[in-house]
């Protein structure tokens, strides 16, 4: 993790690693930022989610006094939600929703939100915070998915060979950061040779508080219907009478 932080923030960082959580501040080329996230492909528990939401709330409060909302760089490394009866009983999704509300509060307080996917981002763990940022970037080798193809074949009762063949042409179901990029769910794919601090500066500068992902998916050709359908419902121009 420190290797990653050193490379992202050559001007310095002060990030505390506490178990699978990390939180702190760093200096980007555009100025100081908060850094909040998870590491080591964490299975998100209610405890991890509470630490994340606490870090977001603290960031918002810290910056209220100065009147300068520093950007928040989320580092998402998660294999998804923790699978446990206790966590389900406690309504883990309620903890994730609380975290999502905190992230949204930060956005409305003027914090620019950028997510960097490191290692892996899966399903519920990705929904809880990483996917809510204004700008979502995948680091090299990042895996992004809901479920691997073998499990998907089992649940949908579709032959794995058929899914694998379809995955060659369709970005719609198969794992892969590239697929999410084509669908507008990921804004940028970073490669190893890139200047990461410059890439991060660009992400911080280009992020705005609106959700443009459906338009992005349409323009990249990977998700051609979502924007048009949502717009039709929003505009209400075609009542089905």
């Amino acid at each position: 993790m420190n290797t990653l932080l050193d490379r992202l923030f050559p001007a310095g960082h002060d990030v505390t690693i506490d178990g699978l959580n990390l939180a702190g501040t760093a200096h980007s080329a555009t100025g100081p930022v908060h850094v909040i996230g998870t590491r080591d492909r964490a299975a998100l528990t209610s405890d991890i989610a509470l630490r994340l939401s606490q870090a977001v709330l603290s960031a918002v409060r810290d910056d209220l006094a100065s009147g300068r909302a520093r950007p928040i760089v989320f580092i998402a490394s998660t294999q998804g939600q923790a699978l446990s009866r206790h966590e389900e009983l406690m309504c883990l999704n309620g903890y994730f929703a609380h975290l999502a509300r905190c992230v949204d509060l930060a956005r409305r307080h003027g914090h620019v939100l950028v997510t960097l996917i490191h290692g892996e981002a899966v399903s519920g763990g990705f929904l809880a915070f990483g996917l809510l940022a204004d700008r979502i970037c995948a680091l090299p080798c990042a895996q992004v998915k809901v479920m691997d193809l073998r499990a998907m074949a089992r649940v949908t009762r579709i032959a794995p060979e058929r899914l694998e063949a379809l995955a060659q042409t369709s970005p719609v179901f198969a794992p892969g950061a590239e697929n999410y990029w084509r669908m507008g769910g990921i804004h940028d794919l970073w490669s190893d040779g890139d200047d990461w601090p410059a890439q991060l500066s660009r992400a911080l500068t280009e992020a705005d508080g609106s959700d443009h992902r459906a338009a992005l998916g349409a323009s990249r050709g990977g998700r051609t219907l979502a924007r048009a359908v949502a717009t039709r419902v929003m505009a209400g121009s075609t009542p089905d009478a």
């Binding site: 929904l127 809901v146 649940v155 949908t156 970005p171 719609v172 179901f173 979502a226």
Partner: peptide
């Protein structure tokens, strides 16, 4: 699951 990536982004 048949359109898992589209569905995940849609829920977000």
């Amino acid at each position: 699951l048949h359109e898992a990536n589209a569905g995940l982004i849609a829920i977000s």
